[in-house]
Design a protein around this nucleic acid. Sequence first.
DNA 1: TTGTATGCGTTATCAT
DNA 2: ATGATAACGCATACAA
Lengths: 365, 365
Amino acid sequence: MTGVKQRKDAISIAGLALHLGLSEGTISRALNNYPDIAEKTRKRVRDAANELGYQPSSTARRLARGVVETVGFVLPSRRDHLSDPFLSEILDGLAAELAMSGWDLLLAAVPDGQDEVEVMDRLVRSGKIGAFAVTRVKRSDPRVDYLRTAGVPFVVHGRTSKHSDYSWLDVDNEKAFVDAVNFLIGLGHKNIALLGGDLKMNFAWQRREGFQKAMSDAGLETPPDYIVDGISDGMGALEAMATLLALPSRPTAVVCVTDAVAIGAIHAIQKAGLKAGHDVSVVGYDGLPMGRATEPALTTMSQASYEAGREVARMLLEAVRQKNIKSLNKEIPQILWEAKLTLRASANPPVSNPANKSHREETKK
Amino acid sequence: MTGVKQRKDAISIAGLALHLGLSEGTISRALNNYPDIAEKTRKRVRDAANELGYQPSSTARRLARGVVETVGFVLPSRRDHLSDPFLSEILDGLAAELAMSGWDLLLAAVPDGQDEVEVMDRLVRSGKIGAFAVTRVKRSDPRVDYLRTAGVPFVVHGRTSKHSDYSWLDVDNEKAFVDAVNFLIGLGHKNIALLGGDLKMNFAWQRREGFQKAMSDAGLETPPDYIVDGISDGMGALEAMATLLALPSRPTAVVCVTDAVAIGAIHAIQKAGLKAGHDVSVVGYDGLPMGRATEPALTTMSQASYEAGREVARMLLEAVRQKNIKSLNKEIPQILWEAKLTLRASANPPVSNPANKSHREETKK
DNA sequence: TTGTATGCGTTATCAT
DNA sequence: ATGATAACGCATACAA
């Protein structure tokens, strides 16, 4: 498949030179703000460029300078990314921030029969990209392993279990779930369950860790039945919550790995003839818009995906700069953001065991 | 901001030539399957290329061939795209299909203070892209107006109100809503309301048209109160549905412009102490995964966004081919897909007015 | 302050 | 069947 002729009617630097009676070199330097160009000439060139709609060929510029101002983003292979509601938000943030520095964002899918690393490697070797952004990392992630050795600047949104030697932006998922559980404990809950996600995903693992930490720090028992892993969508949540509700001693509250799971849980509770936020409290994570429209509205932890995308882009640009300077003091920015709790109606004191303020105090460490 | 040195350790065609004792030209032709290369040589070159991991510089190739095998996609400006759950699906489909032909997908955001057309124009003039894909079009859409005159191949997912002269793939939204309404009528409903969307968006307009057509074809009244426009999320749905339920004569069924709206409606019904799917039937549109986990599970119309992305990519590639051939018989592929109804639990015969089979037959035209 | 010349890594058009 | 050589459009070192 052959592409389309580039820039149909586009004017090149040669055309501009002709038009102005200047040499191509002068035009180039004028437009790139070289100090050795007369202000008057620069203005003349600028004006003509604007007037004629001159836009330097990105391709030629890349070839001449040997640089590629493009960030690659490999879409999670289809079988994995069971509806990430925030993918487009992150991409939006990435693209927006990159655009401010004239960088582009290249999206790549993984064809059947290939894996993500192959795709990334081809992108690098063909010179299509100069840096990578990676999201939704597993605890052990081949993409990160590859990038560690590839010599391409990259920033990870999230982190792997071993994460000391590369740059990442993550949310403190563990703390988020510690906070969520402590919030419920503060309300008076003792029988708290977890609807957890795929433990290969690090965010799910971290959230589970936070759950367990908070429970054990508070000296609360967690029966094995109360921890359900591997839930990835509302349907899974529906079943898991039904099972939880059928337990001889059912929980008075559930913390859910995502809002999608939490909303499924809410419906399971309703289906069982109980009232979410009354008989069973529910806390989610994500801040999905829909959580405001559920009945009851969903109490949830949240992070700003769009902002995360922007920050990752900034880190990426900085990583590229560092690399070019070949500075010896290796700066490896690692940023941990906190999720914040959005109080709504789905979490309240347990009916049989009203909030116990003093107890709450005790569990705060 | 300066980019990263391209392809650190990458081997170039010159290196390969040296390694093999052949000229660069021969290597190039061998790898590009020119017929005038000895099979034996071709194999030798291929093997060496594989072994050394040679990958032609995409940049140099573009410059030499004057073609850009990259599709541009401008993200809807942030204020508009109130959570399009399918954006990432479409992008995924686009990228996947494009990759099969060696094409790339470039994502661009719209910086503050600029509009989408400016961004698109710059992408074209800088030679970064050779074609465009556009989604979520308004009835009158400046992006389409621009592309019509820009000379760049493009395909629209959806269509504007005037759409005879460009290539698009759309779902027959009108028919979808005719079907949805007829389905409800078949169940015995007569008092059917519409929770509609932003009428500037063509899909919302089309769905509304379908609703009205089906109602009037069936000879059913639709009080003005029964049609609510401009709902874009679950929150809006919550309020609108509450208003609908407070009406002296409340509807026995509502058709919703999206699943997000439908789910909001379900919760409003529940909040009002009624039962969705019993007191009020609800039909959505989108086939959101979460619709399977609501209580009751959501009856909805759906289309496959991923597949749509792939099809748009195919049409794009074909448009590029047509343009290169400069064929005189202008093929303008326009494809209309049908949404299919997914029966679940949220739509049933009205309680006070059980299904009337004969009536259903009558309304089928 | 400006012009000239070379190179970036390919492809494509000539020769040979 | 293969090897020179000239573009492609720009950036930059070096002259002037």
